[in-house]
Design a protein around this nucleic acid. Structure first.
Lengths: 327, 327
DNA sequence: CTCGTCACATTGAACGTTCCATGGAACATG
DNA sequence: CATGTTCCATGGAACGTTCAATGTGACGAG
């Protein structure tokens, strides 16, 4: 360490300054050391720090390699937030996928080799295989998505029901009476929750939903259904959807029919990824607070790393209503 | 190293086996060591390896934090390929973004601190600020996207013109005569290339394009234009687009009008990300070979790391025509 | 028998940091 | 004046691997 020499102090003092152990050095020494660091453009060597302190300052983020769906836009949106949240606490994000033959091995490897301090999961199912494995291995982790009660509650999620409640309330306040709900198929719990949240709130307002006005399916099926609904007699005045991607599809259908979205018909999304921001009008949507979620996930990981455990319960965060021009 | 003890050999011998320096050990020793490693579940410590060998076995991937466009789907598609390409050569991918105040500092930091061996860029402009900086800093890097001739030619890209040629040829072979081209606005060179490639090939076939049938704009403007074209008199029988995302928009418009895509009208995309695979019918598209590109990018980085330089010229790869049902 | 060579294996040092125990000066306490 | 206490600073050791140099036994050649 030539910084030590340049500042005329010992290695250890430099280390102390670097790690902010301020009870161990005077203000004068601090100044000497920092200015020497600046002058030499000194950057501590990560590998050496990691080797000695057993902290990599890196967090792993697992992505599935098979995803072929529309959710990709949102996944990148989330990843970006994660990278920023990590960098705020001086951590970096290592992205990894599993191997076909040994889906879980990578996780153990990564930590055994001291490549990451903790792992973050997303697109988790309630009874997540990865989470179960990590919990058994005592590898620190946190999940974007609820976990079964018999698993450690290292998760953060959005309150889909509350989000839908807010969406419906806004639409009802604007005078809408005839609703429809469209979403993508699949048995993920959050898809069901969004639909259920919608239905619950609708009946709370004493409104009823025609059978044909509730549908989940592929993009194309949704498109067809939207077309049928909007061209049928007594069309819905508000179409609530389960995600921004679906809303974008519906929006396109409505506009193709010459409807002015926002006045002729209201359309709402859910998630607030990039998709809804490039439409015209911008989508009204229940935005998933990815920044906050990322921060909380990282915090959960770091607490486990530092204390060996984390007793914080799972965290359900509210969505933020984005009022675009589509409703 | 207790593996050494278990196998009854020295540290160095274990290290030699690990690094495959087979001229330094016998087959019998190899067997003893590997079985001891298996028995103990030994994983070499990355930090220690990095510290000593000065190789992190990690590659940085820079993403812009501001991207709000449709390209997100493709970006994740590419990232995934990159992660896999890296893992094939035992490297991991570290994702990072820049800070607002010092956009370039991160790059130097990352390497100075020995967090990554090299950096991969994407969404590069020809005269890329980041590439210029990295070239000056002698930090190994490679770019997905062409670089100016006065920069080191560490890039891989797709041949947009050739890709469009193939698309047009297929459509012409199927008997299409009335074409239209739709794309997104923006001054990226590849957007211009795809359009130009289309026009060139069209005139090669002696076909002409009505003025209104060539348009680039926002998603909504594209939607409107597609609608106008398809409902006008003498509508195009084939709509070529500059990306799968645009094609998806056009497809939706066509289907809303009750047209059967593939028979009534042909629609083609460009890039082959996930978007085109979830449509119905699947998009016919010039697929960008992300796997190959990733592999080449990683290879370019590793050559620079190992030899200190890489004289391989830039590489222009052909697209792969995916024949979906949309044309 | 001596020497050189080859194939394999070992040992000491080093990578750059932090942990741990200790040192010394200044200052208060009994 | 001896003793403790506080504040700041130091030096030796260690983290787990690879580098560089050296050792050893077998075998063949002179």
């Amino acid at each position: 360490m030539d910084v030590a020499a340049a500042a005329g102090v010992s290695r250890q003092t430099v280390s102390n300054v670097l790690n902010g152990r301020d009870e161990y050095y005077s203000a004068a020494t601090h100044e000497k050391v920092t200015s020497a660091m600046r002058a030499l453009g000194y950057q501590p060597n990560r590998a050496a720090q990691t080797l000695r302190s057993r902290r990599t300052m890196q967090i792993g983020y697992h992505i599935f390699g098979e995803q072929l769906d529309r959710a990709q836009g949102f996944t990148l949106h989330f990843l970006l937030a994660l990278v920023k949240a990590g960098s705020d606490v001086d951590h970096q994000v290592l992205v990894f996928t599993h191997h076909r033959d040994d889906p879980l091995g990578v996780f153990k490897d990564l930590v055994a080799r001291h490549a990451v301090d903790a792992v973050i999961l997303s697109e988790s199912s309630v009874d997540d295989e990865r989470a179960r494995f990590l919990a058994d291995s005592t590898i620190p982790f946190a999940s974007f998505g609820r976990l079964s009660p018999d698993l450690p509650q290292h998760w953060v999620d959005v309150d889909n029901v509350a989000g839908m409640r807010e969406v419906v309330d806004v639409l009802v306040a604007e005078g809408h009476q005839r609703f429809a709900y469209l979403g993508t198929d699949g048995d993920q719990y959050w898809k069901a929750e969004r639909q259920d949240g919608f239905l619950q709130r609708l009946s709370h307002h004493g409104l009823r939903l025609p059978k044909a006005s509730l549908f989940r399916g592929s993009d194309q099926d949704v498109r067809r259904r939207a077309h049928r609904l909007l061209t049928g007699k007594n069309p819905p005045s508000a179409i609530v959807t389960g995600s921004d991607a679906v809303a974008a599809v519906v929006l396109s259908v409505a506009q193709s029919l010459g409807l002015r979205v926002g006045s002729d018909v209201a359309i709402t999304g859910f998630d607030g990824g990039a998709v809804g921001l490039v439409t015209e009008p911008i989508l009204t949507s229940a935005r998933i607070p990815v920044e906050r979620i990322s921060r909380e996930l990282v915090a959960r990981c770091l607490r486990q790393v530092e204390h060996g455990h984390d007793d914080e319960p799972g965290l359900l965060l509210p969505t933020e209503l984005v009022r675009g021009g589509s409703a």
